[in-house]
Computed example of a mutant assay.
Amino acid sequence: MSHDCLFCRIARGEIACHIVHEDENILAFLDIHPIRPGHTLVIPRAHYPWFEDLPEQLASQITTLSQRLAREMKTLYPVERVAMFYTGIHVNHAHAHIVPMHHRHDVTSAVYLEHGAEDFTLPPAPPRQELETVAAALRQRLAP
């Protein structure tokens, strides 16, 4: 793990997050600037800067959990689709976004750039209690 990496610090428990799932290899927690309620990040506990750096087995574990989350999100949020995508725009630690899609542009730049690139803003951060309620609902649905 990297000493200064934000997601490594979250994985070590140094920074609080709203955990949805955790095991020895991966951690899933809510994005604090969600595109939609339920927007979850899935990260490896070990530091890999980019998704292409992930060992194949670890990438498979992330995908398998993401598929489970997507199936539960479809029931919890009655949506037809759930997006999964890897990015590394803000944090250089491989991470997948799992997002219930209420609108076809939920995960496209059209939503964020409708007023031009200079006016880009992050989605608002919901109140802490709202995030915990969402995390609890997803944890319950993932429980064996």
Rank of each mutant, 00 (worst) to 15 (best):
M1I: 05
S2A: 15
S2Y: 07
H3S: 12
H3Y: 10
D4R: 04
L6Q: 10
F7L: 10
R9T: 02
R9Y: 04
R12K: 14
E14T: 15
E14M: 09
I15Q: 06
I15C: 08
I15D: 12
H18V: 05
H18F: 15
I19A: 08
V20T: 04
V20A: 04
H21M: 10
H21F: 14
E22Y: 05
D23W: 03
D23G: 11
D23H: 10
I26F: 06
L27Q: 08
L27W: 13
A28L: 09
F29Q: 05
D31W: 11
I32M: 15
I32S: 02
I32Q: 12
I32W: 04
R36M: 08
R36S: 13
R36I: 01
G38Y: 03
G38D: 09
L41T: 08
I43P: 11
I43R: 03
I43L: 05
I43G: 02
P44E: 04
P44Q: 06
A46F: 01
A46N: 05
H47C: 14
H47T: 01
P49H: 08
D53H: 11
L54A: 07
P55W: 02
P55V: 07
E56I: 01
A59R: 12
A59N: 06
Q61H: 13
I62R: 00
I62S: 00
I62P: 00
I62C: 07
T64E: 09
S66N: 02
Q67K: 06
R68T: 01
L69S: 02
R71A: 06
R71P: 00
R71C: 01
R71F: 00
T75K: 11
Y77P: 01
Y77M: 05
P78N: 13
P78E: 01
E80H: 01
R81C: 00
R81S: 06
V82E: 00
V82H: 00
A83I: 08
F85Y: 14
Y86S: 10
Y86R: 02
Y86F: 03
Y86G: 14
T87M: 10
G88V: 11
I89V: 12
H90P: 02
V91I: 14
N92P: 13
N92L: 15
H93P: 13
H93C: 11
A94R: 13
I98L: 01
I98Q: 03
V99Y: 09
P100H: 06
P100E: 07
P100Q: 07
M101V: 12
H103D: 09
H103F: 04
H105Q: 08
D106Q: 13
D106F: 15
D106Y: 15
T108F: 02
S109E: 13
S109K: 05
V111A: 09
V111S: 14
Y112V: 13
Y112I: 10
L113K: 07
E114Y: 10
E118P: 00
T121G: 09
T121Y: 00
L122A: 15
L122H: 14
P123F: 09
P123H: 13
P123E: 10
A125R: 14
A125D: 09
P126D: 06
P126H: 07
R128W: 11
E132P: 03
E132Q: 12
T133R: 13
T133Y: 03
T133N: 15
A136T: 02
A136H: 07
A136G: 04
Q140Y: 07
A143F: 11
P144W: 15
